Amino acid sequence: MPSEARIRALPSLSLFGFSNEELPLEDQVKRSLERAKAVQNAYSLTERDIKTLSPDFWRLHPDPIMCLDPAATTLLTIQLNLFAGSLVAHIDGQPSHRSLLERALRFEVSGQFCLTEVDHGIDAINIETTAVGQPDGSFILDTPHSGAAKFMPPTSPCGIPCYAVVFARAIQPDGTDCGVRGFVVQLTDGHRMVPGVTSR
């Protein structure tokens, strides 16, 4: 259960006491992330809340505090609905992702959702990013040209590690196309993009 006292105290926190607009862009991003984390920590949503779409899950979204910072609201809704929601949908079959889910629910990592591509929008059936299976069971993700680049703004380093559910066309080592699948990929360590990943 969320802490009623923490929820009621959110508007009085100094974190919400002024506009982000006067801050440099990098500081705006960090402040919005801190605000999103404060709201999630007040509500303390759990794996069960996300999996069952509990009353507490629905109660968070229309909380008036969400009006104070649209960027924080965007980060929080991506984190809970798209990233955590994707992990929860497959967590029983992929229990190794449970610790990442728990870290995301504590906002120790930023979670993103990379479906949209520059040339395809959300036309998922035609995305061109590939994930080619390797003999050892791993995958190599590839964006074949700039039009197939993922379009998801909050993926640059923000002070905490960033992971994403990246949608790609899964290709078996023998070349068989298995259709579009989601892959959990680390994008940043919090300060730098991981090798092979670019954000611009």
Rank of each mutant, 00 (worst) to 15 (best):
residue 90 H to L: 11
residue 85 G to I: 15
residue 133 G to S: 01
residue 161 P to Q: 07
residue 108 E to Q: 15
residue 174 D to G: 06
residue 43 Y to V: 11
residue 32 S to D: 03
residue 22 E to Y: 11
residue 175 G to Y: 10
residue 158 C to G: 10
residue 181 R to N: 10
residue 16 F to C: 09
residue 145 H to K: 13
residue 108 E to M: 08
residue 84 A to S: 15
residue 27 D to Q: 15
residue 67 C to P: 02
residue 154 P to L: 01
residue 91 I to R: 04
residue 97 H to C: 11
residue 16 F to W: 15
residue 98 R to C: 03
residue 124 A to H: 07
residue 59 R to T: 07
residue 128 E to G: 09
residue 116 T to Y: 07
residue 200 R to N: 12
residue 14 S to P: 08
residue 195 P to Y: 08
residue 164 A to N: 06
residue 183 F to I: 08
residue 112 Q to P: 08
residue 22 E to S: 15
residue 63 D to K: 05
residue 146 S to M: 11
residue 67 C to H: 12
residue 180 V to I: 14
residue 173 P to F: 02
residue 14 S to C: 02
residue 30 K to V: 14
residue 22 E to H: 14
residue 106 R to T: 10
residue 106 R to C: 05
residue 190 G to F: 03
residue 164 A to M: 12
residue 154 P to I: 00
residue 52 T to H: 02
residue 20 N to Q: 10
residue 177 D to C: 09
residue 142 D to V: 14
residue 86 S to L: 10
residue 142 D to E: 14
residue 155 T to W: 00
residue 120 H to N: 13
residue 181 R to H: 14
residue 17 G to I: 13
residue 157 P to D: 04
residue 62 P to A: 05
residue 126 N to Y: 10
residue 14 S to M: 08
residue 107 F to H: 03
residue 95 P to N: 10
residue 59 R to I: 04
residue 140 I to W: 02
residue 103 R to N: 09
residue 175 G to D: 11
residue 200 R to P: 13
residue 118 V to L: 14
residue 173 P to G: 01
residue 5 A to L: 11
residue 133 G to I: 01
residue 76 L to F: 04
residue 94 Q to Y: 10
residue 63 D to G: 06
residue 86 S to N: 11
residue 82 L to T: 09
residue 3 S to T: 12
residue 141 L to S: 01
residue 61 H to R: 09
residue 57 F to C: 06
residue 69 D to I: 05
residue 176 T to L: 07
residue 198 T to G: 08
residue 139 F to P: 00
residue 5 A to K: 11
residue 137 G to H: 11
residue 120 H to A: 12
residue 128 E to Q: 15
residue 90 H to P: 05
residue 59 R to V: 04
residue 38 A to W: 12
residue 38 A to M: 07
residue 13 L to R: 12
residue 31 R to V: 00
residue 106 R to W: 06
residue 42 A to H: 02
residue 199 S to A: 15
residue 109 V to I: 08
residue 63 D to A: 10
residue 79 Q to I: 05
residue 135 P to W: 07
residue 93 G to T: 07
residue 60 L to M: 06
residue 104 A to C: 14
residue 96 S to D: 13
residue 159 G to Y: 05
residue 195 P to I: 10
residue 86 S to D: 15
residue 104 A to P: 05
residue 137 G to C: 09
residue 34 E to I: 05
residue 50 I to H: 01
residue 142 D to G: 04
residue 192 R to A: 14
residue 152 M to L: 13
residue 159 G to H: 11
residue 89 A to C: 04
residue 192 R to K: 11
residue 63 D to Q: 09
residue 184 V to T: 15
residue 135 P to G: 04
residue 127 I to A: 11
residue 61 H to S: 09
residue 59 R to S: 13
residue 157 P to F: 05
residue 94 Q to P: 00
residue 105 L to P: 04
residue 67 C to W: 09
residue 49 D to Y: 00
residue 70 P to G: 01
residue 73 T to S: 14
residue 21 E to A: 12
residue 52 T to K: 02
residue 140 I to S: 10
residue 66 M to Y: 03
residue 164 A to I: 14
residue 128 E to M: 06
residue 92 D to R: 02
residue 139 F to G: 03
residue 115 L to I: 12
residue 77 T to F: 07
residue 180 V to F: 02
residue 45 L to W: 05
residue 149 A to V: 02
